[in-house]
């Protein structure tokens, strides 16, 4: 805590004791910016994937489709019977038989707009909207098999499970990438700090000879690399936000697509990137500096 306070307050004279390191400084800022940019994009993808998966799962979880068997002789009776069963099922909030036009629209992507639906054996579909905890899909299936033989209830479980699994994997990969980005920043800062410490071996020797403690010498390097990593990451975050704004933002209305980006408290994660980058640099440089000081003098 004391070290952090001294780092924030700084000491211009102490900073001047170590000569400026031009190219290393610029490279550190650049790499931190690139890493932060990648972190923003990865976060955006991860969070958006999570939101999309959740929205899809929620919509699919609250709906089911009943497919009636194709039989022109009994279709009307089966429809009435099915509607009767559904309307008396607890947890079912609305039931609606899809019109021919709606069914045609569903098939249009695969068969084109001129599909003669009336001449094809297309099963009647019933959209079921559920709500509440008392909805029991297995109980409904049992009743339907008794009263509407041949009807198939699809509660979208087979859709939802792989969708949620895929979303979960994407998020896991994204967070792994973010951890790797953090490790890369730490490794890069360590290398840069070590190079700088080696280049300033004579400066360090003189400082030690006039009574400088390791903490004092390390502080000058730590302060430098912490501020560079923080500044670079800030630039990377700003550019990353710009990039997410330019990404497709999805459809409007009741579209299931959600735009790539950040919502609500997710923005706080972006604030954390420069802070975490600086904290990573602080510890990486401090460890490298003390290790090198012990070796060097």
């Amino acid at each position: 805590m004391k070290a952090l306070l001294e780092l924030i307050l700084g000491d211009p004279q102490a900073d001047r004791a170590v000569p400026p390191t031009g190219m290393t400084a610029r490279l550190t800022v650049f790499v931190a910016a690139v890493m932060a940019f990648l972190a923003v994009i990865t976060l955006a993808i991860s969070l958006t994937t999570g939101r999309v998966a959740e929205a899809w799962a929620q919509e699919l979880a609250q709906s089911a489709t009943l497919r009636l068997p194709v039989d022109p002789q009994t279709s009307d009776a089966l429809l009435l019977s099915a509607l009767d069963v559904l309307e008396t099922t607890p947890g079912v909030t609305s039931v609606r038989a899809l019109s021919e036009t709606e069914q045609q629209a569903l098939l249009e992507p695969w068969f084109g707009p001129d599909l003669p639906l009336e001449s094809l054996p297309i099963p009647q579909l019933i959209e079921i909207i559920t709500g509440g905890d008392d909805y029991d899909a297995d109980g409904l299936r049992a009743r339907l098999s008794a009263q509407v033989p041949g009807a198939v209830l699809d509660d979208h479980t087979s859709w939802r499970a792989p969708l949620l699994e895929a979303a979960s994997r994407v998020r896991l990969i994204s967070w792994s990438v973010i951890i790797l980005i953090g490790a890369t920043i730490a490794a890069m800062i360590t290398l840069a700090a070590q190079a700088s410490l080696s280049a300033n071996a004579q400066v360090i020797r003189v400082l030690r000879l006039v009574g400088a403690r390791d903490t004092y010498i390390a502080r000058a390097f730590v302060r430098r690399y912490t501020s560079r990593a923080g500044l670079g990451a800030l630039v990377g975050v700003v550019v990353g936000i710009g990039a997410t704004v330019l990404m497709p933002q999805g459809g409007s209305g009741d579209s299931i697509l959600i735009g790539v980006g950040f919502v609500g408290a997710e923005w706080l994660l972006l604030v954390m990137i420069p802070i975490l980058s600086a904290v990573t640099a602080f510890f990486a440089t401090r460890a490298a500096a003390f290790r090198r000081l012990r070796e060097q003098t």
Binding site: R16, A17, P19, V203, R205, V206, R208, G211, A212
Partner: peptide
Amino acid sequence: RRRIGVVHQNCEFLDHLTIAENIALPLTV
């Protein structure tokens, strides 16, 4: 070492600091 002032054979200065800053270095550190 703060209690021992050393005049080194080759002086051991930091060439990027002025003479005044070099002389003040033991106080600074």
